[in-house]
């Protein structure tokens, strides 16, 4: 298919040209681009995780509010730590109906494996939000605060569960090790939902799940948040449990653990798509962000609501890539 898609991509301008001519009696070719096939959003991770939930929310919102002429289809491609999804987008040059929702593996997978793909091979469309990370332990564990947890970790090796290998969860784990001198046994699982359940079942001692992956277990009283890896406290003040809201969780820094990490939840398109196509998706996603369902998702998952498009977004991504390169170099995760 790869060569076919490229061929189609090359033929597209020609084709558009001929359509413009046949349409001459009427107005010139329409200014705004509209999708002519279903829009596919690739998820470079397993089901149930943060990226998956967000992609499915977009799918649902678009069809519920009738925001696009064509349906949105979500496809999980967790293969190769997400490399498969990114490669597919990279190889679909000019395909305007393919999007990918990213998590940090946009940076970490190429760096850790040497897979020849980078965000520069894709077209940045829009930053939807930034996702937080929270240090979770089981509610029945004796650790009620970060210092208690760190002290226990220094005493004996604790088991830290996370999504994938040499990705954000492990990077944070290594950062905690560096900041405290404690050692963890990092155990990789396939998706954030699975990681949270492993903690509920006490097969691991702690996780750094995103809020949305663990919130249900927090509400049901099986998990306890210790701190959030951001410079400021979370802004959502609605009570999640009887006594606590997201905003009641201390930042890790104020709790004595100087580690910060935020993750991009952004939408990228195939390389070489026209500016009109990018503009279409920016508008579409803006409308998605304005719906009550989206706002509910943002509250539920306590997201950082920063959004960017265009050049500002590209620059932000470039900085983030550099940061990951240095973080991963420190941890010894770079591909040899």
């Amino acid at each position: 298919m790869t060569p076919r898609r490229t061929l189609l991509g090359a033929a597209a301008p020609l084709f558009a040209f001929s359509v413009a001519f046949t349409a001459l009696p009427g107005r010139a070719a329409a200014q705004a681009w509209e999708p002519s096939r279903p829009i596919t959003i690739l998820v470079p991770a397993g089901t149930g995780g943060g990226a998956d939930q967000m992609a499915r929310a977009i799918q649902g919102i678009v069809s519920k509010h009738n925001l696009a002429r064509q349906p949105v289809v979500v496809q999980n491609k967790p293969g190769g730590a997400g490399a498969e999804a990114f490669l597919e987008v990279k190889n679909s040059r000019g395909n305007p109906h393919l999007l990918v929702i990213t998590l940090s593996n946009l940076f970490t997978t190429p760096l850790a494996t040497g897979v020849p793909v980078s965000w520069r091979d894709l077209t940045p469309v829009k930053m939807m939000a930034l996702d937080q990370f929270v240090l979770w332990v089981h509610a029945e564990s004796p650790w009620r605060s970060v210092p208690e947890f760190i002290a226990a970790a220094r005493e004996g090796r604790l088991r830290m569960g996370g999504t994938g290998s040499r990705q954000e969860d492990q990077i944070i784990t290594v950062a905690i090790e560096r900041a405290t001198g404690a050692r963890f046994t990092y155990v990789p699982f396939r998706g954030g939902g699975e990681v949270a359940v492993q903690l509920v079942g006490r097969h691991v001692d702690a996780t750094v799940n995103n809020p949305i992956e663990a919130v249900q277990h927090w509400r049901s009283g099986t998990l306890r948040p210790l701190c959030v890896f951001d410079s400021k406290r979370l802004t959502v003040t609605d009570k999640v449990t009887e006594t606590m809201a997201w905003s009641d969780i201390p930042t890790c820094k104020e709790a004595g653990l100087d580690v910060e990490y935020l993750m991009l939840r952004g939408i990228f398109g195939a390389p070489g798509i026209a500016p009109a196509v990018v503009q279409y998706y920016v508008n579409l996603l803006d409308r998605v962000r304005a719906t009550p369902e989206w706002q509910q998702l943002m509250t539920e998952g306590a997201f950082n609501l920063t959004t960017m498009t265009g050049e500002a977004f590209a620059q932000w991504v470039a900085r983030e890539e550099e940061r990951h390169r240095s973080l991963m170099a420190e941890a010894g995760f770079l591909a040899r």
């Binding site: 499915r56 519920k64 359940v197 249900q216 049901s220």
Partner: peptide, 23 residues
Amino acid sequence: GVPGSPTAAVLLGGLIMWGLQPG
């Protein structure tokens, strides 16, 4: 909130859309 099969995972997306948070 952890689907036991790929199909169940897709249904999970549907549940979220109807404002139901599985868990």
